[in-house]
Structures are given as C-alpha cells and as structure tokens.
C-alpha cells in the first residue's frame, strides 16, 4: 500500500528543493544562508525515496529562489528539483543548468592563491571534461574537482 502521508508539511508560498542527495541538504542551508532567515524553513534529511534510496529536502516560505542560488544548486545537487509554490500549488519548476562561472561563493582551495587576504571576490569557471565537473580559479588558474570545492562549505 502506498503511503500518502507527506513527510514534511506543505507550504503555502515559497519554494521547495527536492531530491537533494542525502548529506548535501545541510550545505545548501549554509550556502543559501537559510539558517539566518526569519522565514519558516522546513528541512528533511535522509527521507526515503520511491526507489529505496535517501534524499534531503528543503522548503522555504515566502521567499523566491534567486538565479544565482539556482546556479549554485546545479553545482551542488544537479539532479535536485526546484518547485515554486503559490497557494499550496506548484506553479513553476526551475530547470537547473550548470552555470559557466560561479562568483563569490566558494573560497579557492589553493592556500597560496592570491585571493586569500586581498580585496577581490573568488571566481571559478566551470568546465565539464569526460563527465567530471572541474572548477578553474580565475586567479591561480588551478582546476579543482567539484567535490574539493564544495567540501569547503
């Protein structure tokens, strides 16, 4: 018998990020500064999925997801879905597309990169090579795998 109980309470207006890989939810909360907002944020970690796996889920009320956040999400959780909710109904779905670059989000993992301690923002160009996502620092020109960059969040 299918269990139709909602695992996390429905929201009236806002957005829902679903199908976040288990364990990434907390990074997204931190990256989007959702721990500082006054709006209601409902979070589910390690929720069971239909195919027997686990996922994280985040619901944020009365807030719109920005383009920059959607881009960052494409990097952290490329298979996540973003649903826009109005009056308890899904009114739009955001397609996640990998951005060409990501600015001012992650520090450069190279401790000898000039960006540490200078008045500039970090900037990485994103490149997909042989199925792997690499981020190249605009300054030190070193390329890091997505996991090394996002581990720092």
């Amino acid at each position: 018998m299918k269990n139709n109980h909602m695992q996390v309470e429905a929201i009236c207006n806002g957005y829902v990020i679903d199908h976040i890989p288990s364990g990434q939810g907390v990074k997204i909360l931190k990256l989007f500064n959702l721990t500082d907002t006054k709006q209601r944020v409902t979070v589910g970690f390690n929720l069971p999925t239909n195919n027997g796996g686990e996922k994280d889920l985040i619901k944020v009320e009365n807030t719109e997801i920005t383009k920059s956040q959607a881009n960052q999400l494409a990097l952290l959780a490329p298979n996540a879905t973003v649903n826009i909710i109005e009056n308890f109904h899904v009114t739009d779905k955001h397609a996640l597309t990998l951005p060409n670059e990501v600015e001012n989000v992650f520090p450069c993992p190279n401790s000898n990169c000039i960006t540490h301690g200078e008045p500039v923002i970090s900037c990485f160009s994103i490149k997909k090579t042989k199925g792997n996502i690499g981020l190249k620092c605009k300054y030190c020109e070193k390329t890091f795998s997505k996991d090394i960059i996002t581990e720092q969040v």
Partner: peptide, 28 residues
C-alpha cells in the same frame, strides 16, 4: 614577479597600465 599564484591577474585588475607577468608562484 610574485610568490603567490594569481598575483598578476589581480594586479591586472588594479593597474592602469599593462601588467606583464614575470612569474606568479607555481602558476604562469
């Protein structure tokens, strides 16, 4: 020339005149 990678790129953003990189750490 500078011992940190990316120093010349940073310099190019703050300099009013052409910057020529004579070596930035292990980078270029």
């Amino acid at each position: 020339r500078h011992p940190q990678e990316g120093a010349a790129r940073l310099a190019s953003e703050f300099s009013n005149v052409p910057v020529i990189n004579g070596g930035d750490g292990s980078n270029q």
